[in-house]
Amino acid sequence: MQIFVKTATGKTITLEVEPSDTIENVKAKIQDKEGIPPDQQRLAFAGKQLEDGRTLSDYNIQKESTLHLALR
């Protein structure tokens, strides 16, 4: 499925993911596309910060959802 990640600079990244993917996997995909190390990424959805060990389906993130990326 496709999801979107909006960066602090307003850029939107499109990612191909599975509901079973962990947040860690998603951060690795962002690193592949943007070169941002996962340990510098903070992802949020619906106002909640997402934890590495959880999956997209844990957070009820569905196709075409938009996550927000902040850098630490």
Rank of each mutant, 00 (worst) to 15 (best):
A28F: 13
V26T: 06
P19S: 09
K63P: 14
I61S: 01
T66Q: 05
F4I: 11
Q41G: 03
E34V: 08
E18M: 09
P38C: 04
M1A: 03
R42V: 12
Q40S: 11
P19N: 06
T7Y: 11
S65W: 04
A8Q: 09
E24L: 11
P38D: 04
G53P: 07
V17M: 14
S57G: 12
G53N: 10
R54E: 05
H68C: 05
D52H: 07
T22Y: 10
I36C: 04
G47S: 06
D52L: 05
I13V: 08
I13F: 12
K11E: 06
T9R: 10
D58P: 01
F4V: 05
E16D: 10
D58V: 04
L50I: 04
Q31T: 11
K63Y: 14
G35N: 07
T9Y: 10
G47M: 04
L50T: 02
T22L: 09
Y59V: 02
T9I: 09
K29H: 07
I61K: 00
T7R: 07
G10Y: 05
M1P: 02
M1Q: 03
R54A: 15
G35K: 08
K33P: 02
M1I: 08
L15W: 01
A70E: 09
Q2A: 14
F45H: 08
K29G: 05
I30P: 00
I30C: 02
Q2N: 07
K29N: 14
M1L: 06
V5N: 00
K6P: 01
Q2D: 07
N25D: 09
A70M: 07
T12N: 10
G47C: 04
K33S: 15
T9D: 12
D39S: 14
A28N: 10
Q62N: 14
L43C: 01
E34M: 13
N60E: 02
Q41L: 04
L71W: 12
N60R: 10
K63V: 08
I61M: 03
G10N: 07
L43E: 00
R72S: 11
M1K: 02
D21F: 09
E24W: 14
S20Y: 10
Q62D: 14
E34G: 04
I3F: 01
L50M: 06
Q62V: 07
I30L: 08
I30W: 01
Q2V: 14
L50Q: 01
K11M: 14
T22C: 04
S65H: 14
A28L: 10
S57R: 12
L15M: 05
K48M: 10
K27C: 02
Q2F: 09
E24G: 12
Q31N: 15
A8M: 09
D39N: 08
D32M: 14
Q41K: 01
Q40M: 06
D58R: 03
S65G: 06
K48G: 07
I30Q: 00
R42E: 10
E64L: 13
P19K: 08
Q40R: 09
Q31M: 10
Y59S: 03
A46G: 12
P37H: 10
S20N: 14
L15K: 00
T14A: 11
I13D: 01
H68L: 15
L71E: 09
L71D: 07
E16C: 04
E64W: 15
T7M: 14
L69K: 00
R42S: 12
K33R: 07
P37F: 12
I30G: 00
H68T: 11
K27V: 02
G35V: 03
K48D: 08
G35L: 05
T9W: 12
K33L: 15
Q40I: 08
L71P: 13
Q41S: 03
L69T: 02
Q62R: 14
T66M: 11
S57K: 13
I3S: 00
E34P: 01
G53F: 12
F45C: 03
T9V: 15
A70T: 09
Y59F: 04
K29T: 04
S57M: 07
G10C: 05
K63R: 12
G10S: 07
V17E: 01
F4A: 04
K29L: 14
A46S: 10
L50G: 01
E51T: 13
Q41M: 10
I13W: 12
A8V: 13
N60A: 13
E16M: 13
G47E: 07
Y59T: 02
Y59W: 03
R72D: 10
N60P: 03
T14K: 07
R42K: 12
T9F: 10
A46Q: 14
Q2E: 12
V26W: 00
Q49K: 09
G10W: 05
L15N: 00
E51Y: 08
L71N: 15
Q62K: 15
Q31S: 11
L43N: 00
V5H: 00
I23V: 09
R42P: 02
E64Y: 13
K11H: 15
N25M: 07
Q62P: 12
T14M: 07
T66I: 06
S57D: 08
V5S: 01
P37N: 12
K27P: 00
A70H: 15
G53A: 10
A28G: 10
S65Q: 11
N25G: 13
E18S: 14
A44E: 11
A70K: 08
D21Y: 13
Y59H: 03
L67Y: 01
Q49C: 07
P19G: 08
F45A: 03
K11I: 14
Q49P: 15
L15T: 01
K6M: 15
L67R: 01
I3T: 01
A70C: 05
R54D: 06
E18Y: 15
I61T: 02
I13K: 02
D21V: 05
K48C: 04
N60D: 15
G10E: 09
R42Q: 07
Q40V: 14
T9H: 15
A28Y: 13
Q49S: 13
E51M: 07
L71G: 07
E51I: 11
I36D: 03
V26P: 00
I3W: 00
F45D: 02
V5W: 01
K27S: 02
E64I: 03
K11G: 09
L15S: 00
K11C: 05
G10P: 06
K11L: 09
P37S: 12
N25Y: 10
D21K: 02
V26A: 02
A44F: 13
K63H: 08
D21W: 14
